[in-house]
Computed example of a mutant assay.
Amino acid sequence: MRLKKILLSLLGFIACNSFWAQQTAPLKIAVFAPVYLDTVFNGSNYTLGNNNLPRNILPGLDFYNGVQLAIDSLNAEGQSLTVLFYDSKSNTQSVKQILETESLQDVSMIIAAFNNRNDIKPLADFALKKQIPLISMTYPNDGGVKANPYFALVNSTLTTHVEGIFKYLQKNYPTEPILYLKRSGALEDMIEGLFQDLNKKTPALPLKIRIVSANDSTNIASFNEVMDSTKTNIIFCGSLNENFGINLVKTTAANKSYKSILIGMPTWDAIKDLGKGTEIIYSTPYNYTRTDKLAQSIIQIYRSKVSGRPSDMVFKGFEAMYHFGKLLIKHRNNIATQLSDNSFKLFNEFDFVPVKTNGESIPAYLENKRIYFVKKTDGVIKSIQ
């Protein structure tokens, strides 16, 4: 019932198109998230009864809840902002129609939780036209955006992760043999190509990589002949496929005669309890450890509202609204060039770098290049760097 109340409250916010951090607000932020309200409401009538909410609603709803918690914090500080919230999956009003409304014409920033590549460009084009930042908080894809220095990707692209993992291996295991496990697939071929290219062009000592093919059910023990039982083996998982990664970690943990460290992809961050029985390291652009005072406060407030544990989308919504909202207040019209200012850091540092393609002078977009490496032993986080 609490979720139903939150949805009813959200419906009211969207109906009036705005809520306020203060009643007088010269600066305006528009937030877009995929809530799919039209699938649970007929007009203002809730249609699901006591049924569970569809899974596709929950990420956007959690993002909204995080935004709302941040607005409460900004209110408590006496900050002045107007915040507009829009359901990007509305059946009654397209994103294009929303962007034509009068209330959006003087907006100073857009924050978006995308879940589809095709949703990106309309908002990015609007941001470019208005010369205001579009903060893409969740989706690691540029959506085909070109020549747009106002489009900022928080969730780093696969290329950035591969580059980061390569540098991590060079720093920590510069002379160790590295067993590179890959499966068949176009994406896996792309990852391998990037990795091999980095290894060829590096001015430092190239990594000692041995690439071997595997499938989703391969037992790591089948590669014992190329592993060393007298030392720690470094194994890199060159695939985003979750089943492949889970099987690799499980069979490595079961291979007790060989000690190994597994280096994985950012998809490992979403796999619960991954790493039991062995040591894993993976990259992520988000550092939500949930152990500090602020995280614990968010957890408690969310639990009191929803009787549940907040997902990372709650933290992403909170951080997006609070961090970038404070930056907008600080920098105002210069905000587009100040997105890497970490004065109001909550959980993550951001390092937005212009991404240029084909030698063009205008950046295709801005991308957060700050990624973290999480080390887990027996499924428990031991360090983040």
Rank of each mutant, 00 (worst) to 15 (best):
M1I: 09
K4V: 15
L7F: 09
L8C: 06
I14L: 14
C16T: 15
N17Q: 08
S18G: 13
A21H: 09
Q23T: 11
T24R: 03
I29S: 02
S44Q: 09
L48Y: 11
N50C: 06
P59V: 02
G60A: 06
L61R: 10
L61D: 05
D62G: 07
D62A: 14
F63G: 00
N65P: 06
V67I: 09
L69E: 07
A70T: 04
A76D: 12
A76V: 06
E77V: 00
S80F: 04
L81D: 08
T82E: 07
Y86A: 10
S90T: 07
Q105D: 03
S108M: 08
I111A: 06
F114E: 03
N116I: 00
N116V: 02
R117L: 11
D119I: 01
K121S: 03
A127P: 09
L128I: 12
L134N: 06
I135N: 02
S136F: 08
S136Q: 13
D142V: 01
D142A: 06
G144S: 04
K146S: 14
Y150P: 08
F151I: 04
N155Q: 15
T160D: 10
H161F: 06
V162I: 14
E163H: 12
G164V: 05
Y168L: 14
Q170A: 13
Y173R: 07
P174C: 09
E176C: 11
E176T: 13
P177Y: 07
P177L: 09
I178R: 10
Y180C: 11
S184A: 11
L187I: 06
D189Y: 01
I191A: 11
I191P: 11
D197Q: 14
D197P: 08
D197T: 14
D197L: 11
L205D: 12
R210W: 01
V212L: 13
N215F: 04
N215T: 10
N215C: 07
D216E: 15
D216R: 15
D216L: 15
S217V: 05
I220P: 13
M227V: 12
S229F: 01
K231D: 13
K231M: 13
I234P: 12
F236N: 12
G238W: 14
S239Y: 03
I246N: 09
I246H: 07
V249T: 10
T251E: 12
T252K: 07
A253H: 11
S257V: 03
S260K: 01
A270S: 14
K272P: 04
D273I: 05
L274R: 04
G275Q: 01
G277Q: 08
G277A: 09
T278F: 02
I281R: 09
Y282H: 15
P285H: 08
Y286M: 00
N287E: 01
N287F: 01
Y288H: 00
R290S: 02
I298K: 02
I299C: 14
I301R: 10
S307V: 03
K316L: 07
E319M: 00
M321N: 02
H323E: 01
F324R: 04
H331L: 11
N333R: 06
I335D: 06
A336T: 10
K345H: 00
L346H: 04
P354Q: 05
V355S: 08
G359S: 14
G359R: 15
S361T: 15
S361R: 15
L366A: 03
R370W: 01
R370C: 01
V374W: 13
K376V: 03
D378Q: 11
G379W: 15
V380C: 13
